[in-house]
């Protein structure tokens, strides 16, 4: 199994692997933007209790929460072509793997986001809505001017966690043959037989990216909370 461990290789592999970071970030960005759209669309029937649609969303969210992302990925990869062929006679079997990944992660993020939005909107004190009505706002004005801005602040930390979780999940895209960092790592292992070094390089890259994301998100969170009183948390 593999050749003797070579510490220097970890550093040497990083430049090769990092060239494929773009693919990882593309998957992440596309799946988050699509996920946001899907999440908003899914949150609306839940908030307004639209019959049938409400139940469908509950089922959708439950299924996504209930299954591993890997299984979701395989279901989309094998299922989507079958369904499209069956219903619309569209053949997408030759579609590039990366699109299946983006679709899967968008569906997955959408479910998570919809729950986060819903909880955040619920979490805004009803007194805020009453106050908005008392100064003569309409429901729509109340939602966009009063409730939504506060909900965004409440939702942000959970959204940030979701994005970071999603970033780490992209490491599974290679299982259906996407040539991202992990995919390139696989080919490097095949070529050099230094699996351990490759995975350590990948770990370092992922870690640095995650830490960078965390730093950015915590800055943004501070910005969103600028009109909040600092929370007093007594650390024992």
């Amino acid at each position: 199994m593999g050749k003797a461990f070579d510490l220097m290789l970890i550093i040497e592999f990083i430049p090769t692997l990092i060239q494929y970071l773009g693919i990882t970030l593309q998957i992440l960005a596309a799946s988050i933007i699509l996920g946001l759209v899907l999440g908003i669309a899914a949150a609306i029937p839940r908030l307004y209790k639209i019959p049938i649609l409400n139940q469908l969303v509950i089922l959708y969210v439950s299924f996504i929460r209930g299954t591993p992302i890997l299984i979701q990925l395989f279901l989309v990869f094998y299922g989507l072509p079958a369904i499209l062929l069956l219903l619309f006679s569209i053949d997408i079997t030759r579609m590039e793997a990366i699109y299946f990944v983006i679709i899967t992660y968008a569906i997955s993020n959408g479910a998570g986001f919809s729950e986060i939005f819903r909880a955040a909107i619920r979490a805004v004190d009803y007194g805020q809505t009453e106050a908005a009505f008392s100064v003569g706002m309409t429901s729509r004005q109340n939602f966009f001017r009063i409730v939504l801005p506060q909900a965004v602040r409440i939702a942000f930390p959970n959204m940030a966690n979701s994005v970071i979780g999603s970033l780490k999940d992209t490491s599974l895209a290679f299982t259906i043959g996407v040539m991202d960092m992990m995919g390139r790592g696989d080919t490097l292992i095949a070529a050099t037989a230094h699996a351990l070094e490759v995975y350590l390089s990948l770990s370092i890259i992922y870690y640095i990216i995650v830490v960078m994301f965390e730093k950015i998100f915590s800055k943004l969170e501070k910005y969103f909370n600028r009109y909040q009183k600092a929370d007093v948390t007594a650390v024992a």
Binding site: S171, L196, S203, V211
Partner: peptide, 21 residues
């Protein structure tokens, strides 16, 4: 920080290849 900041597949792979070594 490190274990939460890296995908779990990395932990599995690194230990799978690294531990025997």
């Amino acid at each position: 920080s490190f274990f939460r900041g890296t995908p779990i597949i990395m932990h599995i792979m690194v230990i799978y290849f690294g531990f025997p070594l």
